[in-house]
Design a protein around this nucleic acid. Structure first.
Lengths: 225, 225, 225, 225
DNA sequence: CATGAATGAGCTTTCATTCAT
DNA sequence: CATGAATGAAAGCTCATTCAT
């Protein structure tokens, strides 16, 4: 680190810090108040900076929102890339994936609300992003490989695509997190209670496995263990 | 005033019409622009009325939003109550429920975005609603009965709750609709294409059935049919 | 006046007063600072009101500017309509017209600078005005009649149009007023001095008459007198 | 630095180029949007430079505007100095002057709008210019000489000053160009049509000659030719 | 000589809301 | 019951300008 390149001036460093803190503040504020509710001034103040710096670094409020979307996708992909999956143990690995996805949504509520904001605006901003494509769907590929490995080993049945399975896992994790307030009112229970969360995750994992290996005693055994 | 109940006067009728058109406009505008993005003026104009009428009938913008939430829950329940389910044919009935929920979300995107708005605000408004309780969870009860019937008939395994199954069905339908824009970008395909929708519904139904009757040849047969 | 109609409420009266004072303030401020330089806030404060009332009454800053243009044209036409011209004495009447136009520009510098602003914006606003057409060119018609009368009486030569003569009179009066600051620097004299103004008006009148009746001793006589 | 004058270094040359392009961009932008409407940033971008360079070279926005005024006066004088006038043929020469002035305004609309801007600000900037004096009134001197020559030759009557005649020529050319948008709306015709322009110029020339040589058959003859 | 960063004041416009009639 | 007028706050954004390097 302290080797070759270095030589970033003090100012450049400070500038980067300003930009970063604006971006981080924007994630927080947009996540809490939505795109309309999160004002540039609120964000600037939360970052200890000035609203004009947002225009300096991001061009506009929309530009900032695009940067926010790119950043949260980047973070998600980064976290995902750290997942250690053993292709030789597909059932365990699948469990890991389910847990990872559900837990990521749970620990990063900003990810969920920001995507909701973007969908409220019909995907207008993600379409403007050049980097958006880069961040798409390694997840699906991972699950595809997992499924293939399971089929080879005779643990999973064929005919299920990684895409569908990914949607199933994401939907169950996302909806539970995103709608926890209305659901809690609707169901008359607190979905955020640790036992409730654990119960839901295991129900989903069970469902996932049942859909993959219905007739396989092998899988059933794995499931128990 | 004179007389007991009698008929509603012309004025009352007109008043009701004003209130209704404001409420309907609010559903449209809030659904499209969110709670912050939907201004009282925009709503009033969309209703062909005046913004002051909103204060007259609903007290405040928040009061209007509460009324909106109550109304969309009411509509959902009303639609649900028209479902004709034959408890003696639990598999078919379950398919009907899956189809109904998914299709309702699809045909009522405002329901989805409005609930997202409410969850963005952490369920603040639904908590203020007195009627909110009334509208909760008949759905869960219905599925409970369905499951019980299936278990009795030896079609479904025991151990699955209506609550979990409801969440599974809702999550898969809701997420698909709510996040269709970011998902379309993420997956590089159009989730709104009729084939894509049909495929997803049948995948979900298959998953639901597999989770209910994994080891049951009876159910498998039903599934095929 | 205190007869039939009346019955304008106090509020309506006050409202009209608010609108009027905003319009009057706008004329002053736009005339002094131009369209860009005159901010809505400055105008509102000059009118003792609030900037939002400008949007209430005029829709936008541009709408206000359109109203300003209509008003100054209206005032000019109103003043012009009070001119008393004796068609039987065409030379005197022409002198009256020259004096009126030059004096109007001199006493209403806002008329001149506002038209300059509008021309800077390539006539964009006057094109949006519905009333603009109404206010056009009675002046030209008046001069046409004057010329015809003079020709009939053998005082003026034929072949000069009211349009050209109007432009000549307007140009000489307008330019002198509009460019008096740069001209004063350029010529090294103060164009606003009363003698300078009087000299210019008589030079212009002389020029006008010479162009109308070069070869006519009759006219020359009139000119002297 | 070393040596007396020598050639300009590469850096000086580049600096001059930057300064020039800023000045040229400023002329364009100020002419189109006025002093208030033309922002330093807009100008810098139009020049392919940075707004800070404006402060480096011109000190302030006002300093830039002063430089702009000086430059357009310089250009006008330069063009004027190239006029070839034959004092022995005063009528033709006068026609040349009229044509030159009117055409200059027409082909350099920026000259007209910039002077309007300066007059809107009551000549504040031209007063600050040191060079401004240099650029004044050779035009008047030229016309003075022309008139004297004409009087000597018995073509023009005495008693008309170059200053008045210059104002007459300038006013008729300037007003026509400056107010062409509002006039076009006012008169209901397009003043920019080539025939309209030609007609106006010949009307003005005719007026000028009639005012100079009313009783002179000599001049009338010259006019015809 | 030129450039990235910063700053305070100002811009036009929209917000939700209340008052009087 | 409905409407015209008013109001304070805040929205997104641009302004001219200065500071460092």
């Amino acid at each position: 680190m302290s080797g070759v390149v270095r030589r970033k001036g003090v100012r450049e460093r400070a500038a980067q810090a300003t930009r970063d803190s604006l971006l981080r503040a924007a994630i927080r504020v947009f996540a809490r108040h939505g795109l309309h509710g999160g004002s540039v001034d609120k964000i600037a103040k939360a970052a200890g900076s000035y609203d004009r710096m947002i225009y300096y670094y991001f061009g506009s409020k929309e530009g900032l929102f695009v940067a926010v979307l790119e950043e949260i996708y980047r973070r998600f992909n980064e976290a995902e890339s750290k997942l250690e999956l053993d292709l030789e143990r597909p059932v365990d690995s699948l469990a890991t994936v389910v847990r990872f996805v559900h837990e990521y949504y749970r620990k990063h509520p900003e990810f969920v609300t920001l995507l909701n904001s973007e969908n409220l605006h019909r995907g207008r901003h993600i379409g403007k992003s050049l980097r958006a494509r880069e961040y798409s769907s390694p997840a699906v590929g991972i699950i595809d490989r997992l499924l293939a490995s399971g089929v080879t080993r005779g643990v999973f049945r064929a005919g299920v695509t990684g895409r569908d399975l990914y949607l199933l896992i994401a939907a169950t994790g996302y909806f539970y997190q995103s709608n926890r307030f209305t659901l809690s009112a609707f169901l008359g229970e607190n979905l955020e209670a640790p036992e409730a969360v654990a119960h839901w995750q295991s129900f989903v994992l069970d469902t996932v496995l049942r859909t993959l290996c219905a007739d396989e005693p092998v899988c059933a055994a794995a499931r128990v263990a």
